[in-house]
Write a protein that binds this DNA or RNA. Structure first.
Length: 403
RNA sequence: GUGAGAUUAGCUCAGCUGGUUAGAGCACUGGUUUGUGGUGCCGGGGGUCGCGGGUUCGAAUCCCGUAUCUCACCCCA
C-alpha cells in the first residue's frame, strides 16, 4: 500500500464538512469587511521567503520544501501566505496605484516539521492582508474580524496583544535589550545565546523557565515606544474596549516572522494542547518596501484551519433530499429517469437494487434524507410514485409526472 | 532535530508471564415468507496482529531495526 507522506493528510467526509463550513464562514465575514479573494501560487522563488519571512526564522532556516526545478530555479513550496500576496500586490503595481487594497486567501502551506497534533507538514491557513491603510483602526478591524469568525464558529479564545514598535523606536530598544541579555549571558540557554545575534527580540519568547527568570528585569518594549507607536497602541486598546473585545497585554509576545512591526496579536485556545496559537497577525509596514515595492503600510493575520477544526461547533444538519428505489426490477428504469429530473433541483440518492418497502425505508434512514420515494408494481401500473416524509411520517402517492 | 508512549477486522478496543483454527462491540451485508423505517430476531463476509529481521520446537506476545501516529521540547497558524 502506498501511504500519504508524513504529516500530509487527506480531508474527507465529516472533516471536509467542517473544513468547508469554516471556509464559508470566514469568507462571508471577510467579504463583509470589504476583502476580496486572491489566489497565489503554491510554488514561489525561494528568495521571496528569505527576504520576507527572514533568514533568521526557523521557517526559512530549516523548514522549507526547497528544491531546484528543471529550469535551474531555486524554488520552494510556500511556508506561509503573506509573502505571496505581497509579491502579487507589487507585481500588479498596486503599490503604485495607491488607495487601499484588501485581500483574503486560503490554501495549503508547507513546512518540513515533525508533525504532532495541530502541526502538519501540509496544513491550511485562512488569511487576510490589507495594504495602504496606516490607521490603527485597520489593525483593530483585523482583530474584530478574527473575533467575529471565532465567535460565529463557537470557538473560545484568549487574545494576546503587544506592540513591536517601529523603525524609530525598535532599533534603540533592541540595542538596550542586547546589552541586558549579554550581561546575564552565563545563565541563559544555548538557543538564547544564538538568538542574541540572529533575532534578539525572540529571547523574550524563550520557553525556558530559567531564562524567563533572568529576563524578569529586562527592558520592556512597551516602555520604549516612540510617541506615535505609544499613542497608536493606546488607541488600539480603546477601540477594542469600545467594541467589547477582551485582550491581555503580553510584552513578551513576539511574532515569529521578521516582517512584523507595531501591532502584534495572537489568538490562543486552551483546549487543543501545546500548539495553542489559532490565529496570529499584526502590522508589517516595511515588508512591501523590502520586496522592492513602494513603501506601503500593511496589516494582516492568518488562522490555522487544522487547529480550529476540532473546536468548531457545527450547526445541526437537517435531513435533506430524497432517497429513491424500486420494489421491482422493471421499475428501476423509471426511478433513474425520475431521479435525473429531480436532481435538477434536489439531492437524490438512488438505490439500484430492488428491495421490499421495509428495506428501502431502512436504507433511506441511513442516507439521512427527508423523503423516501419508491416505485413498485402498483405505482408502475398507475404511473404513480409513493412518497413518505421521514420526519413527520406522512405519506402520499402522486403521479410520476408531478414529482 | 531531541525525548517518551503507541501500532491487532472499516472504527473503538480485548488478547494474563510466548503454546493448538486471533476475539468483542459498532459498521457493512443477507434473511426475517413478498408494501411501512430509524430502536426486534437469526445469519454472513472481513485480520499473513504496521513493515523487515532475529531468538525459539513454537511469536500478536521477547529482542533489534524501520515506518507511521500521539504527547512533550523546539517552532509556529
Amino acid at each position: 500500500m502506498i501511504a500519504s507522506l508524513r504529516g500530509m493528510n487527506d480531508i474527507l467526509s465529516e472533516d471536509y464538512e467542517r473544513f468547508t463550513y469554516f471556509i464559508t464562514t470566514a469568507t462571508n465575514i471577510a467579504q463583509r469587511y470589504g476583502f476580496h479573494f486572491i489566489e497565489t501560487p503554491l510554488l514561489e522563488e525561494t528568495t521571496l521567503f528569505k527576504r520576507s519571512v527572514g533568514e533568521s526564522s526557523d521557517i526559512v532556516g530549516k523548514e522549507m520544501y526547497q528544491f531546484i526545478d528543471k529550469g535551474g530555479n531555486d524554488v520552494c513550496l510556500r511556508p506561509e501566505g503573506t509573502a505571496g500576496v505581497v509579491r502579487a500586490f507589487i507585481q500588479k503595481k498596486l503599490d503604485r496605484a495607491g488607495g487601499i487594497h484588501r485581500f483574503f486567501y486560503h490554501g495549503a502551506m508547507f513546512r518540513y516539521e515533525r508533525p504532532q497534533k495541530g502541526r502538519l507538514r501540509q496544513f491550511h491557513q485562512f488569511g487576510v492582508e490589507s495594504f495602504g491603510e496606516s490607521s490603527v483602526y485597520e489593525d483593530a478591524s483585523m482583530i474584530m474580524m478574527v473575533s467575529d469568525i471565532l465567535k460565529t464558529l463557537g470557538i473560545g479564545y484568549r487574545l494576546q496583544l503587544n506592540s513591536l514598535g517601529c523603525n524609530e523606536c525598535m532599533p534603540p530598544y533592541r540595542t538596550k535589550l542586547v546589552k541586558f541579555v549579554k550581561e546575564c549571558q552565563d545563565g541563559i540557554c544555548e538557543d538564547c545565546i544564538r538568538r542574541v545575534d540572529t533575532n534578539p527580540i525572540r529571547v523574550l519568547d524563550c520557553k525556558n523557565g530559567s531564562c524567563q527568570e533572568l529576563y524578569v528585569g529586562a527592558p520592556k518594549l512597551l516602555n520604549h515606544l516612540c510617541l506615535t507607536c505609544s499613542d497608536d497602541f493606546k488607541l488600539l486598546k480603546k477601540i477594542l474596549d469600545d467594541n467589547s473585545i477582551k485582550y491581555e497585554i503580553d510584552t513578551n509576545l513576539v511574532r515569529g516572522l521578521d516582517y512584523y512591526s507595531k501591532t502584534a496579536f495572537e489568538f490562543v485556545s486552551d483546549e487543543i494542547g501545546s500548539q495553542s496559537a489559532i490565529a496570529g497577525g499584526g502590522r508589517y509596514d516595511r515588508l512591501v518596501e523590502f520586496l522592492d515595492g513602494r513603501p506601503t503600510p500593511a496589516v494582516g493575520f492568518a488562522m490555522g484551519i487544522e487547529r480550529l477544526m476540532e473546536l468548531i461547533k457545527m450547526p445541526q444538519t437537517k435531513k435533506d433530499g430524497y432517497y429513491m428505489g424500486a420494489m421491482d426490477e422493471e421499475a428501476l428504469d423509471f426511478v433513474v429517469q425520475i431521479a435525473h429530473k429531480k436532481r435538477q433541483t434536489d439531492k437524490v440518492i438512488v438505490e439500484y437494487k430492488s428491495k421490499n418497502l421495509k428495506n428501502h425505508l431502512k436504507a433511506a434512514d441511513k442516507a439521512n434524507v427527508k423523503y423516501c420515494a419508491v416505485i413498485g408494481s402498483n405505482e408502475m401500473r398507475d404511473k404513480n410514485i409513493w412518497i413518505k416524509n421521514l420526519e413527520d411520517k406522512s405519506e402520499y402517492t402522486i403521479p410520476m409526472s408531478e414529482f
